[in-house]
Design a protein around this nucleic acid. Structure first.
Lengths: 353, 353
DNA sequence: CCCGATTCAGTAAGCGCTTTCTATCGAGAG
DNA sequence: CTCTCGATAGAAAGCGCTTACTGAATCGGG
């Protein structure tokens, strides 16, 4: 049926071992022999059987990347960066050992996260990168740590990207300063004079949600403001939640002068709701996002947000997964979140009490 | 080292063959035996060795998805939809035969496209989905057809999604009516009274670019307008090209009243350039996009564009790839592109000649 | 001129699973 | 009571590749 190593060997007049060695370049082969083999490979259009070599060598060229949803730019940008680190040369040379990324959409489901980890273990993945926040549930954290331990025991490198270190497993971690970002955003609004804030948080029981909320509260406390200056509503990380959440916040406190959204996508929903309500941004209500996704600058008014270096973090995670970069001391690298003050925030036209 | 089928067999007091049959459920096994095997699997935390079974069964559970760049929403939405069709049950049951998607970023490079196809053939992928437009170069088209033929000969299902059928290979195809979309957009502008149009086309020598441009010209011809009513500039499918392209168009013809962008992302760049030039949208210049990506409705003013059912097409392609849907007659399914008339287009305030 | 290094190629034993072919055991059929 | 057939389970032969081992030249130095 299909061409095998043995066919190539026969054609080149050498043994299968020699062909294998030429293809993997990990053993000396005389120049003349090598070129004879390569010619045979060409002529027969031979393509290595990946599963067979994975079995024999007990390693595979697959790298798993877990994301909530690849259609969400937050994850897409990170995943794209992870992948860019293992992109093959455009000229198609040196394909041996070329890694490929398996992208797994968990949809935010903890169970599916575990399922995919099992599936990746089945593939004997060379590495696994888990991106984005995770559910904060003791049972799940434990199950996750167990699964990851099994993977690392089996030789799979594990890297966390955009999520905090996992208790119970010392995976290399690339994370964001979500607390700091939320704090800076809140300080920015406070310094503009806002005193009645609405906070549209992400889903409960998620690390990202909690950290951002903590940063928000920290800024309020530091400013000597207790919790009464803010109102919190939880929702999903999507536009619809932003729309609904904004209406809910306004219902609870019509005198709000600023709304902090869980992320940029949510902020877009907030803006839409405010516009539909006839409120101007930022004159009537200031709005902030989080992440600084590509579209944030094109929103009108341009969204004040906090920049997460998603591409840098993803690329770093990719290199760590491929063992091409020395790990940070302590195994954890934290990226700072810079404030991007733009047009969606301004001093309140109706000052607080 | 790691637990194997034989270990499970020993523990359950049966032969390896029986364990294999329980796991794959393709051969009768007595209930009592089955449960004994499953218990052993649990106790030993056995995880199938994917490469080994792929080798023995000569099939793999991997499906390749080629995209230009997964960070681009156009591709991310399609890829996400393709994947959703092979998402495992959340409860982790029935993992046998569970497919996984390998996402390959070609970066629009024809060479890399071919390289990835080879890499997928090496993995003995069960199916391959190629998304997005492709380069129109006879040499590349031929090379591509050859590669795809080798894949299908090897039993890999090939599906094209969001690109026209490939001469030289009868792969199942899910495509968009790019011509019709561009025609409708142009007709919309003409009917509003615009007569001096600027067209910001995508990269030359790409099917998508050509088809959209043809639709544009078709609408002009039908309206009895020759080419003189429009000006064309080519650029990449990104925001920066939109920005630069808009300035270039205005330089060449300051009296333009409308600009059609290659896609929504480009349109955002156009809008930014116009704003920086102090031109109002749509009063001074109308702008249209293409694709109707999620952010189009949140642009200000909301972008008039044409909706491509990316998710539907991706899902369809996914089902076809998994052989879970009967192929359309002729092997080609074409999706219509609906006009989404929004606020970025209006009659020109300074009518044409 | 002989000998231990060194270099390169072949032999063959798996890697862990699937699957064909056999074998066994009962239960009806004749 | 023997024979046949259906339902299960096992034995064993690979699937195509990697990688110790071995073996055969070749080479430079004593």
């Amino acid at each position: 049926m299909s061409v095998t190593l043995a066919d190539v060997a026969a054609r080149a007049g050498v043994s299968a071992a020699t062909v294998s060695r030429v293809l993997n370049g990990n053993y000396p082969v005389a120049g003349e022999t090598r070129s004879r083999v390569l010619r045979a490979v060409e002529e027969l259009e031979y393509v290595v059987n990946g599963p067979a070599s994975a079995l024999a060598a007990a390693t595979s060229d697959l790298v798993g990347v877990l994301v909530n949803d690849i259609a969400d730019p937050f994850f897409a940008v990170m995943a794209s960066a992870v992948q860019s680190e293992m992109s093959p040369a455009a000229d198609g040379s040196g394909l041996s050992g070329q890694k490929m990324a398996i992208i797994c959409n968990t949809g935010g489901s903890p169970e599916r996260e575990l399922t995919y980890l099992t599936l990746l273990q089945r593939q004997r993945a060379a590495a696994v990168v888990l991106t984005g926040g995770t559910v904060e549930d003791p049972a799940h954290t434990e199950a996750l740590a167990t699964r990851l331990r099994r993977l690392s025991d089996a030789g799979t490198r594990v890297v966390l990207c955009g999520r905090p270190p996992l208790p119970g497993h010392d995976a290399l971690t690339v994370t964001f300063d979500n607390r700091g970002g939320a704090r800076r955003l809140t300080e920015h609004l406070l310094s503009l004079g806002h005193r009645r804030l609405g906070y549209l948080a992400g889903p409960t029981a998620r690390t990202t949600t909690r950290h951002r909320l903590e940063g928000h509260h920290a800024a309020l406390s530091e400013a000597g403001l207790a919790g009464e200056a803010t109102l919190t509503v939880h929702g999903a990380y999507d536009r619809a939640s932003g729309y609904d959440g904004a209406l809910e916040l306004l219902r609870r406190e019509p005198r709000l002068t600023a709304i902090l959204a869980a992320n940029d996508t949510v902020a877009l929903g907030v803006c839409a709701a405010l516009r539909d309500r006839g409120l101007r941004i930022p004159q009537d209500v200031s709005v902030t996002g989080f992440d600084d996704l590509p579209f944030a600058v094109d929103a009108t008014p341009a969204l004040t947000t906090v920049r997460l270096p998603l591409a840098d973090a993803g690329a770093r995670a990719g290199r760590l997964a491929l063992d091409r970069e020395t790990p940070p001391v302590g195994g954890v690298a934290t990226y700072h979140a810079d404030l991007m003050a733009r047009a969606s925030t301004a001093p309140p036209s109706r000052p607080g009490p």
